[in-house]
Design a binder for these strands. Structure first.
Lengths: 236, 236
DNA sequence: GCTTTTCTTGTCTAACTGGTCAGGTTATTT
DNA sequence: AAATAACCTGACCAGTTAGACAAGAAAAGC
């Protein structure tokens, strides 16, 4: 007793805040949307550090500063919460699948793509890590996505790169593996940031690092394709 | 009843086999060594697929075809078993930290290093995946190793590559990130093999793939460093 | 053959965790 | 202001799991 004394929480204040700050902004910035975001963010942090089974709903609740039963109010089950979080991540992932055509300049397109991927790795390392963990464990939730959307995307891009090659715009390299190389080298800075920061004795990445890494990767990868990186696109 | 009937297991046979096939081969190829290997291998398979917490000792026992209590007989606890498995992996990892000196030919050394890393990714994907998962989750068990051994190793190699650069043997690139690039691009074929195989619609990698990947990575990465890959070392 | 050590294994337990639920409060609508 | 809907939350339950343990079987040592 005493601990359970006050049912007078700060909830009403929180609700007003949410309603006030985003009055008619987004279609659904209700209490629901606000709390769901909070929970999804907390879940991301916990799932990254402890894996699916290693994360308890209680831990997510604690991090989201909500009672555990609330998590179950907003998300039917742990599996559902995880699914929703993973959907958000793949959506974010797909948003970077930039446009390119066979008429474009390979150097420009690849430079821009590498920069985008590096920036995403720096801004959303946890998203990348959860995606990576999912693939490492055999892609149980993403197999369909890979077989359909990703494979399709890959074929389109391969076709374009191959056309660049046959136009003599770049050296003849294996375009499929070129894309894998860009993926691996950029995502590495998210997934392995602990290793990289520890080895280089840094606490966190800075803008300077991001620029340097982007330049390095562009130089080596594009150079390996017989291209001169076009850094002018980096300032756009 | 009936299920628990026969305590007459095939254990005596198993012991004799183990003793016979490796009479005085290894210092400790006793029943203990034999079963420990079996358990460690089973643990690797389970931990990769389900993570630390998601793996039950029962699941490891089932895969190792031993009663659960036996696992606890050989390994005091789950944490201990995991630790031992991780030690084995880092040992395997360190074994590839090849020798190089500033008098060597960069093209030869890097080609050989890339090949070694690709081959290791293909032969031990699970080891790579467990290592990756460990780093992704913040390297709780490997932080010390990274701060000491890996950082030290990195500094030695960086020094050598920088000396190659100042000798004009290769283009001036960031040697630290060059090593990260080799790590990321090669390990990707282990950690993300599910993704790669699904996208390319393959069931498994073949020797041909391994050769092709090695050549591709050598061409692009060495090319990006202003080097001509020396594939003659690949036949050694 | 006898003793000691190593190994085997079914059973039990204490702790944890996902999920439920009923009884409440607060917001919204009419 | 009354009624309805949305939200909150402590308490509870059922299933799972790491680990302990004791009693025995096999192997090794003497």
């Amino acid at each position: 007793m005493g601990v359970n004394a006050g049912p007078v929480t700060g909830q009403s204040r929180r609700r007003k805040d949410a309603a006030a700050e985003k009055s008619a902004d987004n279609s659904k910035d209700s209490i629901r949307a606000h709390n769901e975001r909070k929970i999804l963010r907390a879940a991301e942090l916990e799932f990254v550090r402890h894996g699916y089974k290693g994360t308890s709903m209680q831990a997510i609740a604690d991090r989201a500063e909500l009672p555990k039963a609330n998590i179950h109010y907003y998300f039917k089950s742990k599996a559902m919460l995880y699914s929703r979080m993973l959907e958000n991540i793949t959506e974010l992932w797909n948003s970077t699948l930039s446009e390119m055509s066979e008429h474009d300049d390979p150097a420009k397109v690849l430079t821009r793509y590498i920069r985008t991927k590096v920036e995403l790795s720096m801004s959303h390392p946890d998203a990348s890590k959860i995606y990576a963990t999912e693939i490492i464990q055999g892609a149980p939730h993403l197999h369909d996505h890979l077989r359909k959307r990703t494979r399709q995307w890959m074929r389109e891009k391969v076709k374009i790169i191959d056309s660049w090659i046959s136009q003599g715009k770049m050296k003849p390299v294996d375009s499929t593996h070129l894309i894998f190389l860009i993926w691996s080298s950029t995502q590495h800075y998210a997934d392995f940031n602990t290793q990289i920061l520890t080895i280089t004795n840094q606490l966190e990445f800075e803008q300077e690092d991001i620029d340097q890494i982007t330049r390095f990767l562009c130089e080596v990868i594009l150079g390996g394709c017989g291209l001169e990186p076009d850094f002018s696109v980096l300032t756009t």
